[in-house]
Each structure stands twice: as C-alpha cells, then as structure tokens.
C-alpha cells in the first residue's frame, strides 16, 4: 500500500534502453511488454483515443489480473472486466457514455463484487499521474475533501478501496489550511493511441491530449499505437507538436483505426451505430452479451483488419467522414 520508492523508480528508468532506436513492432510482440499483475494506464478519455487495438491484442494474448487506471472509462472497461484482463479499475467515471446510460456490464461485475471500480475524482486522477510524472510521491489538492469519495479511499481503519496507496489530509506547513495529498501513480505500462509518431516514438497529438503526456512520463514502460508512422524528419520540422518524447517510449505499433469504435481526433468520430449495437448486445443479459461481443469481435477475427471488416466498411467511412469534418471551418 505504498507508492514505488524513489530509488526503485530511478532504478527502473535506468534499466530501460532509452536510446534513439527503431521501436516499430507488431501488436503481438508489443503485448509481451505487459506482464500479468501489472498496473496498466490507458490513454485517451471516454470514447476518445482509446487504445483499442492494444487492448484487443491483450485480450487475445489472454493476459489477466491487470490493475487498470484511466481518466474516464467507457466501453473498454466492460471489455477489461468481461475478458478477465482486469477486475480492478481505478478511474473517476465508468459507463459507456451519458447517452447510453449506466453500464450494465460494470454493474453486473461490481454489484456482485467480482470486480472493483475504485473511484477518485477526475482531478485526483490527473494529479496522481502528474505526481508520478514529476518523480514526487504525492500532489496536494483542494477537492474531494469532505466527500464520501475521499472516505472510501482514505480512513483510519484502512480504505475500502485504494490499490496502491490511500489519500491523506494534512495541515499546510505554510498556511495552516487543510489540504488533500493524493499518492503518485507510476504505472508499470502505459498504452496510448496517437495520430502519428516516428519509429523512435516521438508522438504528435492533435486536439485533446487528456492526461496522456503525464501518463507517458509517469509510466515505467510505454507502448504507443499510432494511426501512422511518420519519418523523423517530419517530426523535426515541427518539434513544438511533439507531446510524448521518444525517451519514454518502448514500442511503436502502426494500427490504422487503432481506437475504433471510439474516436481519434480529426480522423474519425465514434462509430455510433456500432456503439448502439454494443449497447443492445449488453442490454438484456449483460454478461452473456459481453461474451458474445468478445467472441465475435475479439476472438474470431483473423487480424485487426478482419476486426474492422466485422465492424463494417459503411460504419468506418461514416466515422471517418464525420471525423474529418472538424476541419470544415
């Protein structure tokens, strides 16, 4: 129940090959960087830039017992629970999306206590990753105080829910005010989907960056999936656009439509009809529905292209048309 010690954090970083080298690999090879039991941080937020291709490969590799953290969890959370990849998710909000209502799969697993949904505030998630990114054990903040969200992840008798460390209050040594200290998250692995990066892992993000820059800095290993691998020359022409540096990255996998059926800013919007299909499949019998979905879209496809085939060309083109519409102005 204590965060990684500073010497251990430094040791893990020292041991990595952080040189400027070609890191391009396949989904199947990249998932070998994830060990059962690892803490995996997931980039993006809700239905945006979810690294679905990597999650898909983790399911197919039958990984299990991961502790997963993310800013906000959408349908990939259901996939984590239903596939057995993870039964412990740390996040601030968990459901498919407000227009689809509360996730029935999440409810089925958490209400029967077969899975844990550890709830922190959104800002707490952000500052926990930031503390990890800064190499300090905690960050002070001013929300969560007085709430039951705090009570469940702190408390004198031990928290009801806190996988790595509990939150603590303190009296500020300068002002005497009450502050909340939230413990650093230094994930074993971060999985992040980006619009483009080079073979070394210099990633340029368009639009919303969510918590991804801090997650990459906080993690002990980073796997990038990218819509396109571009040349290092192209990266060097616009270094101000580089948001994740090569030195944090361990593997790069080129996966077009790598966050389908979620959105990738400027390229495609969420695949709404497919999201509706998922909601329908999990509406009546959430667990059986989720298993049927996993079978059809995770286990049966021959490869990622076949997964996209099963979602359907019409859906893909519609999502792409809407996605590129952001630049219509």
């Amino acid at each position: 129940m204590t965060p990684l010690s500073y010497s251990e954090l430094r040791q893990r970083t020292r041991e990595r090959d952080r040189s400027l080298r070609d890191k391009v690999t396949t989904l199947e090879d990249a998932v070998r960087l994830v060990q059962n039991g690892d803490h995996v941080a997931v980039g993006g937020c809700t239905a945006s830039r979810t690294p679905f291709a990597l999650i898909w490969a983790l399911v197919r590799a039958q990984k299990h017992d991961l502790t997963v953290s993310r800013s906000i969890v959408s349908t990939e959370g259901d996939i984590f629970y239903a596939s057995g990849l993870s039964r412990h998710i740390i996040t601030s909000w968990f459901s498919q999306g407000i227009v689809w209502g509360v996730s029935k799969v999440m409810r089925a697993y958490t209400e029967s206590k077969r899975a844990r949904f550890e709830e922190w505030s959104h800002m707490a998630m952000g500052l926990r990753y930031r503390a990890g990114a800064m190499g300090v054990p905690f960050m002070p903040m001013r929300s969560m105080l007085g709430s039951d969200v705090l009570a469940r992840v702190s408390g004198d008798e031990g928290p009801a829910d806190a996988a790595f460390a509990a939150a603590k209050t303190m009296e500020c040594p300068f002002t005497g005010e009450t502050l909340l200290l939230v413990p650093a998250l230094n994930p074993d692995v971060a999985i992040i989907h980006v619009q483009r990066c080079d073979a070394y892992g210099n990633a340029q993000l368009d639009g919303l960056t969510f918590m991804d820059i801090d997650i990459a800095m906080a993690a002990n290993r980073v796997i990038l999936t990218t819509e396109r691998v571009v040349s290092n020359e192209q990266i060097r022409r616009h270094p101000d656009q580089t948001k994740i540096g090569f030195f944090t990255v361990d593997a790069v996998v080129e996966v077009p439509f790598g966050s389908a059926p979620h959105e990738c800013y400027g390229l495609y919007e969420p695949f709404y009809s497919h999201m509706d299909l998922y909601a329908q499949m999990t509406a009546r019998d959430p667990e059986a529905g989720a298993q049927a979905y996993l079978e059809r879209f995770y286990h049966e496809p021959k490869n990622w292209a076949d997964y996209l085939n099963r979602i359907g060309m019409a859906e893909l083109l519609d999502a792409q048309r809407r996605g590129s519409g952001i630049y219509d102005d």
């Binding site: 459901s95 509360v102 409810r107 949904f117 959104h122 929300s143 969200v149």
Partner: peptide, 10 residues
C-alpha cells in the same frame, strides 16, 4: 453502482 464523479466532485 452509478458511473461516479467524473469532474463533478472537483
């Protein structure tokens, strides 16, 4: 089990 706070608490 409802979806949780998101940014609501903050």
């Amino acid at each position: 089990r409802l979806p949780g706070t998101g940014g609501g608490n903050d």
